[in-house]
Nucleic acid binder design. Sequence first.
DNA 1: AATAACTTACTTGTCATCAACAAGTAAAAA
DNA 2: TTTTTACTTGTTGATGACAAGTAAGTTATT
Lengths: 207, 207
Amino acid sequence: MTAEAKRRTQEERTALSEQLMTEAAVSLLVERGIASTTLAAIGERSGYSRGLVTHRFGSKAGLLAHVHDSVAAEWVNRVNTLVGRATGVTALQRVVDALYQFIVDEPEELRAMYLLRYSSIDPGAEFRANVAKVNRAHVRALARWIEEGKTHGEILPMVDARIAAELFASVVDGLLYRWAVDPEIPVSELYELIRAHLGYALRVPSP
Amino acid sequence: MTAEAKRRTQEERTALSEQLMTEAAVSLLVERGIASTTLAAIGERSGYSRGLVTHRFGSKAGLLAHVHDSVAAEWVNRVNTLVGRATGVTALQRVVDALYQFIVDEPEELRAMYLLRYSSIDPGAEFRANVAKVNRAHVRALARWIEEGKTHGEILPMVDARIAAELFASVVDGLLYRWAVDPEIPVSELYELIRAHLGYALRVPSP
DNA sequence: AATAACTTACTTGTCATCAACAAGTAAAAA
DNA sequence: TTTTTACTTGTTGATGACAAGTAAGTTATT
């Protein structure tokens, strides 16, 4: 730290530097990608030395895991807030809405998270476990909402909640992959289509 | 090359070494991932020196692009063979079948290709253009099959071929992502579900 | 047909970059 | 004052890139 070195407690200092480094990492990841983002650049962009990132997070993988988990936590928050106490098809549609809103509000963070999510299929990615954990939690939540829809009689009884949840998660992940490769794809139309299909595919036909 | 240096033309030599290096790259990518796969390891596993890969492909990115394009070409072949002259829902279902067969027949190649496909969203990935090109070609082919289904009266007229094709491609990519992260997911059930949904979602209801 | 001249396939030497880690300094807490 | 913590600086090994070299294959000349 240079210049205006305000008087801070150690706790405040670590929290601040951690946040600044995470933000710097997100912007660098989006600008340059994972391989070209150096620890030195992150440290320096956030106003510290080239060595602090390693010191704090242990390794590049440690930092990437932290970045992933931070954004994933925000994503979970957004979903939970928007879904609230809804269940069944409504809950799933709200998930779609939350995602769309996330794309609009924080494209950088979302892009950084998906950069990490997708690169986590690399056997050498040490933060693989973090991603897999988040994925499992998502599917569990989705399956629960579907089960609730079944008990309320809204969703067809023959629907296998686990399989349907897995497919829904796949659609979302696939769509975000294609958005990440080509941001010009008609995202809003695709989300509309998914919302509509959720109704047709899962709901008990009204008499 | 050592030992049994058979008498070969230069053309044969380059073709052979290129193939051996590509195969070595696929196996190393699947074993260790992109970052941990060194050019030296590829050269040596294929029986050459540490320097040949760079010499032949120019750079690591050049090699990765070549590997991607090789597997992508095989994928396109498989799809075209299986789809044949089919159109509409049948064609799309055959695509699903081709993919499932690819997973069963050549999981390593498919995994390597998807490793590269997904890591291509990284802004630093120089083979991004290769992946984007293949993606666009896929969507074009899918949209064409859907359009043909519409003209034959099999597929609902209100279906937007471009959007539906994009969504179908997303589903496939998303599913493969989840398979890559967790090979234990119920792939065959999911493919069945997709096959079935293609019928419900696109086809004109029979009278 | 033989050999010389050239071109191409492949190898080895070297450098710059970067992640990792060790050792140091300064600021805060005890 | 002593100890702990936040952060910086020095150094090393690994690796991608490239330059320079060697040997094998091809073409031209006689």
